[in-house]
């Protein structure tokens, strides 16, 4: 009798330990604890179950120098469909998982990480929903934070400088501010063109699209993709680097379907009209965000360009993006300054 109990217990643990909780992904309410979803074999170490696949984007959104680790989960026997110029159309029950963390010391990976939050995009029956879980001090569990949370973080950067930031875990509404397209919540990152790069998986080095095919979570993708470049790759053309950067950092709101469409400033990768890209474009409802400057971009004159001014600012009433940033992205500012400087009239 006891043996049977033990057997059942082991069975229960196995199901619990080795399977993602599909029902929780599609259920109406969000559980209080991240571990309830069972995405990870080992939460603290952030080791996922096999069916939770890590991925990376070619160019990423700046979030106060935090590091991000991404995973995708698609339920068994289902596939995400390729969509032109858009994120894959993931089937109901899919999850996109993103953990934000800072290394304790960027020079020394073995010093460990400080996990801040894990954001989830869950594909429910009638669309995506967003929620974030903030990690506890012990770093062994993350708890649902509907209204967001402030975490004061300190870390040591590559050159040994002590850094700190007032990090904000976004509330549910703030998730939607960026993750909205035509008023519906949508992922931003996993477009085919954004994941078209190699990644080191446990079973080898593969192009991610090839790997997704092999793992049977997608069934097709075009061979010709207009992929962005890695904005940090200095061997690439600066215009391509900047456009990639602006696409992923600004284009989700600054596009005709995004939250900032009323501005007429469109920075997504497909925009080609100079005025809408900001060249000699006057501010509309910018207020003091303009910093006393007349145009979004004045070719050749970075110091007269509102776009750069708002990237540099740390004033909540001025800075862009509006949320998710408390520090200036110095490296990007240098690049965008050079881009505007080189820009012809």
């Amino acid at each position: 009798m006891k043996n049977i109990y033990n057997f059942l217990l082991v069975l229960l643990l196995c199901t619990k330990l080795y399977a993602v909780n599909d029902n929780l992904i599609i259920s109406e309410a969000f559980p209080e604890k991240l571990s309830d979803f069972s995405f990870f074999k080992d939460s603290s170490a952030q080791i996922p179950h096999d069916e939770v696949i890590p991925y990376e984007l070619i160019s990423t959104l700046f979030s106060d120098y935090s590091y991000k680790q991404r995973w995708v989960y698609v339920p068994k026997n289902k596939k995400a469909k390729y969509e032109e110029d858009w994120v894959f159309n993931f089937p109901t029950g899919s999850a996109l998982i993103k953990t934000f963390y800072y290394p304790v010391d960027e020079r020394n990976p073995s010093a460990g990480k400080q996990l801040l939050e894990t954001r989830l995009l869950l594909r429910k029956e009638d669309g995506w929903e967003a929620v974030s879980y903030a990690w506890n001090k012990e770093q062994n569990e993350a708890y649902k934070k509907v209204a967001g949370k402030t975490i004061n973080v300190a870390w040591t950067d590559f050159v040994g400088e002590e850094k700190e930031v007032r990090y904000r875990v976004p509330n549910v509404n703030q998730c939607k501010e960026c993750h909205a397209a035509d008023d519906k919540i949508s992922p931003i990152g996993p477009k085919a063109r954004n994941i078209n790069k190699d990644l080191e998986f446990e079973d080898g080095n593969f192009n991610q699209l090839v790997y997704w095919m092999n793992r049977e979570i997608i069934d097709e993708y075009p061979l010709e993709l207009n992929s962005p470049v890695d904005w940090m790759d200095e061997s690439k053309d600066i215009n391509d680097r900047v456009r990639s950067y602006l696409d992923v950092n600004c284009g989700h709101c600054h596009s005709p379907t995004g939250n900032a469409n009323s501005t007429g400033l469109y920075l997504h990768l497909n925009e080609t009209r100079d005025i809408h890209l900001g060249k000699y474009k006057k501010p509309v409802a910018t207020g003091r965000g303009s910093g006393g400057l007349k145009y979004s971009i004045v070719p050749g004159k970075p110091e007269e360009s509102i776009l750069l001014h708002r990237m540099e600012s740390m004033d909540p009433g001025v800075m862009m993006p509006e949320s998710g940033r408390a520090l200036t992205h110095e490296e990007a500012v240098v690049m965008v300054r050079e881009w505007i400087l080189l820009m012809q009239n």
Binding site: R166, R168, N173, K176, E177, P316, G317, E322, S323, A326
Partner: peptide, 12 residues
Amino acid sequence: NQKSGAQGLLVT
């Protein structure tokens, strides 16, 4: 004393 958010109250 606002430190984040581009407005006081946003309604969507």
